[in-house]
Amino acid sequence: MKRKLLGVIDATTYHDDLEDLLTHRSLAALPFAGRYRIIDFVLSNMVNSGIRSVAIFPKMMYRSLMDHLGSGKNWDLNRKRDGLFFFPTPAVDSDSNKIGSFENFAANLDFFYRSSQEYSIITNCYTILNMDFKPLLDWHIHSGCDITEIHHENGTPMEMYLVKTSLLIKLIETRNETGYTCMKDVVLDPDHQHSICRYEYSGYAVMIDSIQKYYSTSLNLLNSDVWNQLFIKEQPILTKVKDEPPTRYLKGSTVQNAMIANGCLINGTVENSIISRGVKIGKGAVIKNCIIMQKCVIEDNCYLDSVILDKDVKVEEGTILTGTSRDPFVVRKGTKQGALMNT
């Protein structure tokens, strides 16, 4: 496996429905599960599958993504040879919003020429899963297929493809003649010249493409079946470490059915919620069915039900914020919510 498989993560995707959470960041850098960013899942899957060279293709607003990934050290990808590569898409106004856009790859063809890995796996950046790609590679090699597309067992294509690196290079080089703009085009073309196979994945996998999906998938983490499929000791999801102290539960706090990251100070009540790193929850505050992102401050006696607070939101004393399970109330990054504001 060591030098056999190249990882390619397409991080150019943007979903309009997630706009409120994507004003400052790319989808790949969307916080998830209290301490992760969405991209941590596929990236960790790759590393845990023995992939030692990963190329990430982001587009626009990649500051938070770059800050998160750094040198790749937390994924053990700060290597002398191979490691983590970051290829921001040069044509900013290119409208190719498709997974595995050949236009984006073409701008960095040299990277593919230089890579020694015989096979490449191309994935999207926004699927929550913990998958071992080793059996997939074995399956692909044995099947003799040119292109393997991963499908979820419920039939949905997962926008993940395995090909020989040489074929990928050929597809990129001939994109103008063939008219193929991305991997999906190849797979969907009824007249394609390649043998295409489907690999069925039966584990937990959710693609985050809307606020509703983000919200329900987050709260589903509280279900131990889901939890156990995503957080596996031998296949850890790796992320940027933050040196936060353990979370402190103070007098008067009540916490039930919750996932809580480090560095929090909890004085109030938390039920059925996901609390990220470094969140402060004041006395008498009640947090129900919420996703609270990093470093939010919720002052005393607030009441929040079905709310998503983006990073660094301050909710002032006595504020009431409510959404519904179908339509959670979303508060944008770095804003302030006061008791007298019109919500």
């Binding site: 599960a33 301490r35 353990p246 402190r248 009540t254 039930q256 059915n257 919750a258």
Partner: peptide, 17 residues
């Protein structure tokens, strides 16, 4: 991963990693 506090759990004045 973050700590998981189940529906049956009771946490009083503690430090948990």
């Amino acid at each position: 991963p973050p700590q998981y506090i189940s529906p049956e759990a009771i946490i009083k004045e503690s430090l948990i990693n």
